[in-house]
Computed example of a mutant assay.
Amino acid sequence: MEQRTFPTPSPGTTVPAAEPARVAPHVPPRTLRARRRRPAVIAMAVAMVAAGGLGGAVLYNSTGQRIAVLALARDVPAGQAIAAEDLVVARIASDPALRPLDATDRSRTIGLRASRDLKRGGLLLKADVTGDSLVEAGQTVAGVAVKRTQLPATRLTPGTRVLVVSTPDNGPNGTVRTPETLTVKVVAVGKVDTDGSQVVDVALPLADGPKLAAWVAGGKIQIILAPRTDGAAATAPTPAPSGSAG
Rank of each mutant, 00 (worst) to 15 (best):
64 G>C: 15
211 K>E: 07
205 P>A: 09
129 V>S: 01
34 A>H: 08
104 T>S: 15
222 Q>R: 13
118 L>W: 01
153 A>R: 10
4 R>C: 11
8 T>L: 04
230 D>P: 13
150 Q>C: 02
162 V>K: 00
75 D>A: 04
159 G>K: 02
183 T>N: 11
55 G>Q: 03
24 A>K: 11
51 A>H: 00
33 R>W: 05
216 V>C: 01
199 V>R: 07
235 T>P: 10
53 G>H: 06
169 D>A: 13
206 L>M: 13
157 T>M: 07
167 T>M: 10
207 A>W: 05
238 T>N: 03
113 R>M: 00
183 T>C: 12
113 R>G: 00
114 A>N: 01
9 P>I: 13
173 N>I: 08
206 L>P: 09
69 V>P: 00
88 V>C: 03
10 S>E: 12
59 L>G: 08
181 T>I: 09
235 T>I: 08
51 A>C: 14
80 Q>M: 07
128 D>H: 14
75 D>Q: 02
96 P>L: 03
182 L>H: 15
214 A>C: 03
154 T>A: 08
25 P>M: 11
189 V>F: 06
34 A>W: 01
41 V>L: 07
202 V>C: 03
126 K>Y: 05
141 V>I: 13
191 K>Q: 08
202 V>H: 06
229 T>C: 08
192 V>P: 01
66 R>I: 06
244 S>Y: 15
189 V>D: 02
9 P>E: 09
65 Q>K: 13
